[in-house]
Structure formats: structure tokens, C-alpha cells
Amino acid sequence: MSKNSIQLENISVTYPNGHHALTGVTASIEAGSICGLVGVNGAGKSTLFKAIMGFVKPSTGRVTISGMAVKQALKQNLVCYVPQTEEVDWNFPVLVEDVVMMGRYGHMGFLRHPSKADHEAVTAALERTNMTEFRKRQIGELSGGQKKRVFVARALAQGGQIILLDEPFTGIDIKTEDALIILFRSLAAEGRLILVSTHNLGSVPSFCDDVMLINRTLLAHGPVETVFTQENLVKAFGGMLRHHQLVGADLHDDEDKRSITVLSDDERPLVFYGETGGQKITKHGNKE
């Protein structure tokens, strides 16, 4: 079997109300790595996910998953999806273990009667995400981090090779974030394709191998080191970022020209240190 991949060819999405959410996105994403999908709110991250899953129909272009049409790939349970917290109805009467079991429906027969293998997969997924002790909780009775982990557990129970995570780091504490990053790393190392959307810049270099910067179209795509630059980020985020810079004269008493640039939205700030810098000095404004 060939390596898992997602091929996007000239994807454009226009919503029925006439909004052009995405235009001409062409990219190829390979398994075995973590790819960050980075863009401001409204950039089209969730829309791109939904196009990959066939939930919204692209007005132009084509999505190919591991060499197959989307529909065929979905039939094979290849794609797992972890929704954005805002898209879930947390009052819904389901227990944690019920949600994780939903990941197994595609493996079950007509009546969706869980087999022994299904129960085992659920237990294993709960363990791997440290959610075992909460399995009998109703999903509304969980903290922000636990809420995320339920859906990650569902993806694990489903066992797909391609995992799409929509803003898994929003509204969770640093400890949970680090635990999730370790989990994603090991999933990628097992040969899965991990695509994570985030508007949280600071953590991107620490866990992504590749990044796609989007703002209603694909602005840049490639390895973090070459693509995740100050210039590209300012292009992607425009005026949405808080931009703080300390130039050489404020940092050093010598002739050193290097400066510190702190880019932050509202979570982990991103820090650049080097000679490419502007002139403005502002106070630090980030939370941490």
C-alpha cells in the first residue's frame, strides 16, 4: 500500500450565501509528519477541513486521499476528524465512552452493535488519552482539555491513518497542550498523517514539521524552518497580530544589531531573534 497522503488540486469553496471562503488551494500533504494549518479566524481552516472530508463541495478542483476519491477513502474509515469545540453541542446526552464508541460505527454492522474488538478499541483509546477515569461522564461535565481529549480518543478508536484536528489547542492549559503534542508526535511517528489547524503561533515551531499558511487562499506551504518566517506571518495575519519588537540598542550596550520580535495573537507568543527587524518598540502584551 502506498503512503497516505492528501492531494489538493485547485480547491475553491464558495458558500451558498456567496462568500468565497477559499480560492485555488493546491497542495500535497504526506504521511509521517505533522502539518500545521495556520491562519486567522475566518481564514478558511475549518472550510478546508470540510472540503477534504467532502462535507462541503468545492466549486472548483479536486481532493484525492491516498490516491482515492474522497467518498471511497471515507468508506474505508481512513479519515478521522476532531471538531472545533464550538461545533459540538456539549449538552447532548452522551457519555464520554459513547462518543469514543462513535469512532467505531464505521466498523460495525447494520445495527451498530459493538463487538469485543470495538469495546477494546474504545478502552485503549481512552487509556492513551488519559480519559479512562472520565468514561462515564456526560460530555458537558468535562474541563476544556478533557473535552478535546474525548474527540482525540474517538479518532484513535476509529483508527484512521489521516487525522484532521480543528484547533485542538484552543481553550486548554499548557499541560494538556504538551500532552497532546507528545501524542500527535507519536501518532505521526507511527506513519499517520496529522493535519492540525491553529491560530496559536507560538507552539507551531515546537510540534509541526510543515506548515500551510492560509488566508482565504494558500499563502505558503513547506517545512517550518523555511516557511514560518516573520515576513510570511505578517502576510498571513496582516493587522491581526500584536507585534512587539525590541531592537538591538535596547537589548545590548554594544554594536549588536540583533533584535527580538514577539508576534502574538492572544496565546503563546512567537519570538524571533535576529538582524531582520523593524524599528518600533512596544511593551510586551502577552498573557504568559
Partner: peptide, 22 residues
């Protein structure tokens, strides 16, 4: 009653229902 799990999943998370091929 027979299809209650599929219908329930559709109400809860239609996107996930789609990704597992329902």
C-alpha cells in the same frame, strides 16, 4: 429504533457521520 445510533450520530455530529462513510 433500529437506526437510532445512526440518527443520533447524525444529530450530534453530522461531519463525523460523513467521515465514517454514513
Amino acid at each position: 429504533l433500529v437506526k437510532r445510533k445512526d440518527l443520533m450520530l447524525y444529530c450530534f455530529d453530522p461531519v463525523h457521520a460523513g467521515t465514517i462513510g454514513l
